[in-house]
Design a protein around this nucleic acid. Structure first.
Lengths: 111, 111
DNA sequence: AAAATACTTAAGCAAGTCCTTGACAATTGA
DNA sequence: TCAATTGTCAAGGACTTGCTTAAGTATTTT
C-alpha cells in the first residue's frame, strides 16, 4: 500500500462522522440520504465526508437514476489493519529479543 | 476505547512523519534526538509530532538528566487494530447473511 | 407539465495543523 | 566555570479541514 493512501485512510478514520458512516456501511450498502440522515449536519457536509471516504478507497459508489448507492471496500480496511498489526508484531519481537538477551546475560536465572 | 481517543490515534497515524517515528520505536526505545535526526525538519517540529503521539497514548516517555527516552505503548496500537478488524468482520458477516438469503430464495441452486 | 425527491456545486468563514525561527532552560563534559 | 549537548517554549505564517447557506441539476411522481 502506498504511503499516501495510508495517510488518507487513517485521516479518513480519524473523524467520528466518517467512522459512523463506515459503521453503517459494514451492515450493507446505503444511499447518500440514508448515510446523511442520522448525522447532525447538512447534506452537503455529509457529502464532503463521503468524498473523503471515496478518495482513500474505503467506499465506492454508483449512481442509478437520481440515487447514489454506497458500499464499503474491505480491502483498504484490511490494509490499514495490516499496517497496525505488523507494527505491533514488530514491537513484540523486539521484546522477545530483549528477553533472550537478558536470559543470556543472566544465565543464573535458568535451571 | 473512547471515541475521542480513537480520533486522536487515527489522526496520529495519518501523518508519515509520525508513522516513521512509530516504525523506529517498535524496534526499541529512542531519545528525542534519535527520533528527530532522520527527519527533514527542525527539532521543535519533530517534538510537536512526538507530542501528538504522546497525547493519544501511542508513545510514553520519561526524562532522566537532560535526555528524554521514548517508547511505544502497544495497547493503543492494538486498540486501533481492533476497531478496524471488527468492522471488517462485520462486513464479512453481512456478506455471509446475504449469501444465506440468496441460497434460501433460490433453492434450485442446491443439490 | 409541475412538483417533489435526491443529489451536487460553489462561496465563504472559523478553527486546526504543520512548519519555521529565535530565544531560553537544564544537564553534563572538558 | 565555561562550553557543548539536549530538550523546550513562543510567536507567527501557509495551508487544510469541516461546516454553513444558497443555488443549481437530474430524475421520478402526480
Amino acid at each position: 500500500m502506498l504511503n499516501y493512501q495510508l495517510d488518507r485512510t487513517f485521516a479518513a478514520l480519524a473523524d467520528p462522522t466518517r467512522r459512523a458512516m463506515v459503521e453503517r456501511l459494514v451492515q450493507g450498502p446505503a444511499t447518500v440520504s440514508e448515510l446523511a440522515k442520522p448525522l447532525p449536519m447538512s447534506l452537503p457536509a455529509a457529502m464532503l465526508h463521503l468524498k473523503v471516504l471515496e478518495e482513500c478507497g474505503l467506499v465506492t459508489s454508483e449512481k442509478t437514476g437520481r440515487v447514489r448507492t454506497c458500499r464499503i471496500d474491505p480491502l483498504v480496511l484490511s490494509q490499514a489493519e495490516k499496517w497496525v498489526g505488523e507494527r505491533r508484531q514488530m514491537w513484540e519481537r523486539s521484546l522477545d529479543r530483549l528477553g533472550a538477551f537478558l536470559d543470556q546475560t543472566k544465565p543464573e536465572d535458568q535451571s
